[in-house]
Design a protein around this nucleic acid. Structure first.
Length: 423
RNA sequence: GGGGGAAUGUCCCGAGUGGCAAAGGGGGCGGACUGUAAAUCCGCUGGCGUACGCCUUCGUAGGUUCGAGUCCUACUUCCCCCA
């Protein structure tokens, strides 16, 4: 795994140049297979939510690169494993999803993949499958006899994920212990169905991936490879994808294109180059130039990152709109009607309220979850209504909204602006 | 089966002598400085009230007490040691 020797295949070379590679199981063999255009690669995705978030984007992008380099991407939805419930999750008692919910989630997630990959029946077309198809049908004894014989406890205990738990004296359930086998079975099944020979994943999946690789090599005597990506975090160490408004979802109904654009726009300086390489298709030379921009000029690189990333997910129009809105709002200080808008009922349940307090407006705008929080924000100088800092308890009349597109411009901090429209 | 230990502010870690809305971190949010950056410094971080205040919190259920996170009993879950 000498990092210096260049790869022969376009696929691996690109992956390395753009920073996707953490570890590879059999670099030389995989390189040869890729050079021959014989890579069928898969990644497993959880189906617990209706959308993927940015944390998974690096995986999606890998499949995209694979397809572009002439390989065939397989998307595996964890319909079977989701039914069990991921035990590695800390707050274990996650409610078990029904089959219908899981199917709905899968359908919703698929719309995102269609933006990044071309699906179809051709040799390099992407395919999506649900591992419930085969995992649901496994009988326990059959499972043990067919696959269990290939795994020794000695080896399983040596895996980092297991060792870590044991060393820290944390419980490790039998279910969890079996998880790695199930994933290995996935890989084997995919090898038989599609000739899949590569599993991709995050660095935390290394152990699980290796198991699948070995299982295939042992049982079917076929070549199989694994490749992991580095764990993604920002330069200052924060976990990727967590921001002000919670998880950065990829589905537009959970996270608007404008917000998505803002997420990328607010990238730290030190991450710009890395993110451009990972999350855009811009040529490397161009990226090198962009990340070297001095001082405040690096902002141009961030805008480009935001544009490219948003365009890829939400399309040209949405990206352009987000950029225009941001430009008007932050650089020219002009009100744009494309800002996130929240409608609320002006008259309260108690009757004809003709005016509202500042904190009520903040809460109606969804910028505070309670009146107390709203008041604290106002007192801390973090709120602006119609561009002025209100006092706690200050009253606003409905007519105050008319000046700005019929809405109150409610701003929390520097970046969060919402139009609160009385109806 | 026997013995010992643990569970704390529903984001995480974590202190806690019977008077506690509960120390301290991390994280998050806000402010200052900047470039919609980072670093740094400051403030906030259970809910409701403008406020002296009220309500709800320390695994679950009871009990002792003027008063319980703190003491007692039972239960649940987890860890360790012995068998």
């Amino acid at each position: 795994m000498t990092a210096e020797t260049p790869f022969k295949s376009e696929f691996l070379q690109t992956m390395r140049d753009r920073g996707y590679i953490h570890q590879i199981t059999h670099p030389a063999e995989l390189d040869a297979a890729a050079a021959d255009g014989k890579v069928v690669g898969y990644i497993g995705f959880d189906a617990t939510a209706a959308s993927l978030h940015v944390g998974s984007l690096i995986q999606v992008m890998m499949l995209r690169r694979l397809q572009k380099a002439g390989g065939k991407p397989i998307v595996v939805m964890g319909g079977g494993t989701t039914k069990v419930g991921d035990p590695s999750d800390k707050d274990a008692q996650r409610p078990l999803l029904t089959t219908e919910q899981i199917q709905a989630n899968i359908a919703s997630i698929k719309t995102v993949f269609e933006k990044f990959l071309t699906f179809g029946d051709g040799p390099t077309d992407a395919v999506m499958v649900d591992n419930a198809e085969w995992l649901d049908r496994l009988g326990y004894v059959e499972f043990l006899r067919e696959f269990g014989v290939h795994f020794t406890i000695n080896r399983m205990l040596a895996f980092d994920s297991v060792k870590l738990r044991l060393d820290r004296e944390q419980p490790l359930t039998f279910l969890e212990f079996n998880y790695m086998l199930m994933q290995a079975v996935d890989f084997l099944e995919l090898e038989r169905r599609f000739g899949t020979n590569l599993q991709l994943g995050g660095s935390d999946q290394w152990g699980n991936i290796v198991n699948g690789v070995e299982l295939i090599r042992r049982v079917d005597g076929k070549p199989a490879f694994g490749l992991t990506t580095p764990l993604l975090s920002t330069a200052s160490g924060a976990k990727m994808g967590k921001t002000v408004a919670g998880a950065v979802w990829l589905n537009a109904d959970l996270r608007s294109p404008y917000d998505y654009w803002q997420f990328w726009r607010n990238t730290e300086d030190a991450d710009v180059g890395r993110f451009l390489r990972l999350f855009t298709d811009l040529p490397l030379g161009e990226i090198a130039r962009l990340e070297a921009l001095p001082g405040a000029e690096i902002n141009d690189a961030k805008k480009l990152l935001a544009n490219e990333a948003t365009r890829m997910l939400h399309g040209e129009d949405e990206a352009a709109k987000a950029a225009t809105t941001a430009e008007a709002t932050f650089e020219r200080g002009v009100l744009s009607d494309d800002l996130p808008t929240v409608e609320f009922v002006w008259a309260g349940p108690e009757g004809d309220l003709t005016e509202r307090t500042a904190e009520a407006l903040v809460k109606e705008a969804g910028l505070a979850s309670s009146m107390r929080e709203a008041r604290d924000l106002i007192q801390g100088g973090g709120i602006r209504i119609n561009d002025e800092k209100p006092l706690v308890g200050q009253y606003y009349a409905r007519s105050d909204a008319l000046a700005n597109l019929g809405a109150f411009k409610v701003q929390k901090g520097k970046k969060t602006i919402v139009l609160a429209k009385p109806i």
